[in-house]
Simulated assay, not measured.
Amino acid sequence: MSTLTAADLAREPFLRGMRSADLGRLATAAHVVEIPAGRRIIAESESAERFWLVQAGAVALDLRMPDRGTVVVETFGPGSVLGWSWLFRPYRWRFGAVAISDLTAIEFDGRLIRTLCAVDPALGYELTRRFTELVIERLQAAQIRLLEMSYPEPAPQP
């Protein structure tokens, strides 16, 4: 497990523009992980204590729906963030996720990050602001996908 630095994290799109001191603190809670294709990374409604910055590969975000099974809501790849539920009570995953190709990501310890945020409210505000924007984007994507499923396109007229 290699040690990450503030400079490593500064290259990540989600963290771009954060103070170097904040990135240094975040680096203490981070390490690089390799996740094979097909592995479930997040199981909906289980305890949420991590998040990831995707560096390579692709992830499918999914949701269990009654009478439809598991539905892919969104897919994303390098430069994306996976997981926001670690920041918001009750710290349970609201969606599921599976690696759809081999994945390289920076994994963060959510419990440690919550502690760092409690000690440094400016860091807490900055992360909360960034993750709230992410939540809004993901919920809008889920809404669009669910609407598409509910109202399929009409058949073309001859």
Rank of each mutant, 00 (worst) to 15 (best):
L53Q: 10
D120R: 05
P152T: 10
R39H: 00
L15Q: 09
E44K: 05
R40C: 01
A60G: 10
Q143C: 07
V98E: 00
D22E: 09
R114Y: 01
A6E: 02
P90T: 10
L26R: 07
L146V: 11
L15M: 08
P154D: 02
Y91R: 05
D67S: 09
G96A: 13
R111L: 14
G124M: 10
L87A: 15
V81C: 05
T104D: 06
I41C: 00
T128V: 12
V73R: 03
R94L: 12
I106K: 13
P154C: 01
T75Q: 02
R19L: 01
A27D: 03
P158M: 04
R11N: 15
E12A: 09
G83V: 08
L23P: 02
E46P: 05
D120Y: 07
T70Q: 12
H31D: 06
A56F: 08
G96Y: 05
Q55I: 08
R11E: 15
S47Y: 12
P36F: 04
R111S: 12
L9V: 02
F51L: 11
L112G: 11
S2Q: 12
L82C: 00
L61P: 02
P156Q: 13
S20Y: 01
V71F: 00
A105V: 14
R25T: 14
E153P: 02
E49F: 07
T132P: 01
L134K: 14
E46H: 06
S45V: 09
T5D: 13
V98T: 08
T115Q: 13
F108K: 07
R114L: 13
T5K: 14
G110F: 03
A27I: 05
G57T: 03
P13T: 11
A56H: 04
F76P: 04
R138E: 05
L61M: 12
H31I: 04
E133I: 07
S150N: 14
A27V: 11
L9I: 11
R39Q: 08
G96T: 04
Q55V: 10
I106P: 13
R40K: 01
